[in-house]
Design a binder for these strands. Structure first.
Lengths: 337, 337
DNA sequence: AGCGTCGACTGAACCGGATAAGTAACGTCA
DNA sequence: TGACGTTACTTATCCGGTTCAGTCGACGCT
């Protein structure tokens, strides 16, 4: 089965390739009657413009790239990325853009991927996740003039547009809620310490605890995996003045923490309250259901994709602050015993 | 910053474009000395062949497609797909193939995506998930001569190569284990009933229970979501002769089921044993940890990608039976009270 | 009638590679 | 020494779109 080309359409319509191109792209240069006839023929023979040919002359690949730098086993369990991808996808496919995905194992590999994509003209722009302080990817992308949108923030002076939500404010809501319940010893299990949003949360946590005059506050860091979440929890709960509440940087660690508490014979929430960051359906499945900081992650991805498409089409694009995660109290939080 | 083209390399090397092409692709036609010189120059100026131009002449897009037809909220929590994608990715990126991902909301939309990809020459082949009985996608792909590998099986006479693992055998191992523990009333919470692998498991469960002469066996179906897993569990555990063991078609439902049992005041495993299908890290995080049917999902994806690349390069490709999932007994199974 | 303008379309160049066909230089061997 | 084969290239063509520069006829205006 041979793929129909623009020449096939042109032949059937009795016009030149150029006329077909104008007709299909809504350009002036053909009469309305001819345009309709060409459209009908294209439809009839199932013509789709060859993306390579189009990319070659039009200089737009109609694809955007997403490189993820997390170990496979963590990508799998963290619902965040898959939800983000769903949202990105929804926005892209509505405009017939493809999403090219690549899993890499180091920031250097990620930079190499960007360079390759750029050189190959494989993508028109990229979405950047997991920003670090002084992220080396940013200058490379700026240097290449490859349109990019950073997911996460806020923007600390990079030239790239950011789509972000206010983690400090969300954390404040959670901590103030715990304090209102009567908690004074609150601990936090953070994510990868070199990620910018982890740092922002850690800093916000520290200043907030100072302001509220809390007794003993501690942040342990982790790699977002359940194992490390469990280990950190075990350490916290077996210390002399153990915390009465723990805030986790993702839902997987919170679930692991819950299991550890139960295993150690502590009641949740009576002995220890638990708060998860990001509210995947998992939080509602465990017993007790977890109090969580919830946000609409697919929408977050969609906004980022939307901004990226705008940047690709040459519109000046500023930062966009997405909805702040809000606390959903459930059964895992209560006043301390 | 201008992207270097093959002409730039040729000019710097003082040879023709053709010579550069031969040199870079390892074709005969240039001397070893010239080849090395050209390679060095290409490296130096950071040349990457434009993928569109290459696709246009070479007729290979160097990309494979994966269309997923599941609601976003289910894609997010099920670790299966993300792990599969990681495995696929590992295999593809080793050979400089890109993965193009598309989330669709119906089988018809998925077929439309395949037609478009084919027409656009955007991908060289596709991976097909979630096969159904008399799947309409299969004849379309055969008709288009678009290389494809089906993930899941076994093959019921379609012309497409399958990469599959023996679900019936895995289920048998789980049931025989439960029976050996003394269970006689075993229920199963299956996935989407119109998927082929659900049907295979259901059929295997029925014949097996008949062969073993079990008292009361029942399969409820679901959409793989935690909510439906919880609902099914509630229904099973509140029936008069409630099962002493439940096997779930995925880990998310098993976790939901565990929570429901605890909520209803039943002890796991004393009152009811629980087995999960697919052993994501989540199964180890809950308390008690779940007995699970485990398989290496990234490897599964890698095998499928590998076969697809073989099919794309024109090698005749048969079915490939991957490792059978094996039972990992943990704390959620025990003899019935 | 003559001229300019506009709409509708054609023809050809171009994007950046792959590749078939052509060519010059060189070695080989009867 | 001349026919022949081989090596190491060059040249030209092609892939399938987009787009710019023309072409041609119809129409309006003076």
């Amino acid at each position: 089965m041979k793929r129909p080309t623009i020449a096939d359409v042109a032949r059937r319509a009795g016009v030149s390739k150029g006329a077909v191109s104008y007709a299909l792209n809504g350009q002036p240069g053909v009469s309305e009657a001819t345009r309709q006839r060409i459209l009908a023929i294209a439809q009839e023979i199932g013509f789709n413009p060859n993306s390579a040919a189009r990319a070659l002359s039009g200089a737009t690949a109609n694809a955007v790239g997403l490189a993820l730098c997390r170990p496979a086993r963590i990508l799998g369990i963290e619902p965040f990325f898959m939800e983000l991808i769903s949202g990105v996808e929804a926005e892209l496919s509505a405009r017939s853009y493809a999403l090219t995905l690549q899993v890499v194992d180091s920031p250097d590999a990620e930079i190499a991927v960007y360079r390759r994509w750029w050189g190959e003209r494989r993508v028109d722009g990229v979405l950047v996740c997991d920003l670090r302080t002084d992220d080396r990817r940013v200058p490379v992308l700026e240097d290449l003039h490859l349109p990019a949108v950073v997911i996460g923030g806020p923007n600390h002076g990079s030239g790239l547009p950011h789509v972000w939500s206010d983690d400090a404010a969300a954390l404040t809501e959670a901590i103030e809620y715990l304090v209102a319940l009567g908690h004074r010893r609150i601990a936090r299990v953070g994510g990868l310490p070199d990620l910018l949003h982890t740092e922002i949360r850690t800093e916000a946590f520290r200043t907030l605890c100072g302001r509220l005059g809390l007794d003993r506050t501690l942040t342990l860091s982790s790699d977002y995996s359940g194992e490390e979440g469990a280990r950190a929890t075990r350490r916290l709960l077996s210390s002399a003045d153990r915390p009465t509440a723990i805030v986790y940087d993702n839902d997987v660690m919170a679930i692991a923490g819950l299991a550890v508490a139960q295993e150690m014979g502590l009641a949740v929430p009576a002995d220890v309250s638990i708060v998860a960051w990001d509210d995947s359906p998992l939080c509602r499945l465990v017993h007790p259901p977890l109090t969580a900081l919830s946000r609409d992650i697919p929408a977050y991805g969609a906004h980022a994709a939307n901004r990226l498409l705008a940047a690709i089409s040459g519109q000046p694009t500023g930062d966009y602050q997405d909805e702040t995660a809000h606390l959903i109290p459930r059964g895992s939080t209560a006043p301390p015993r």
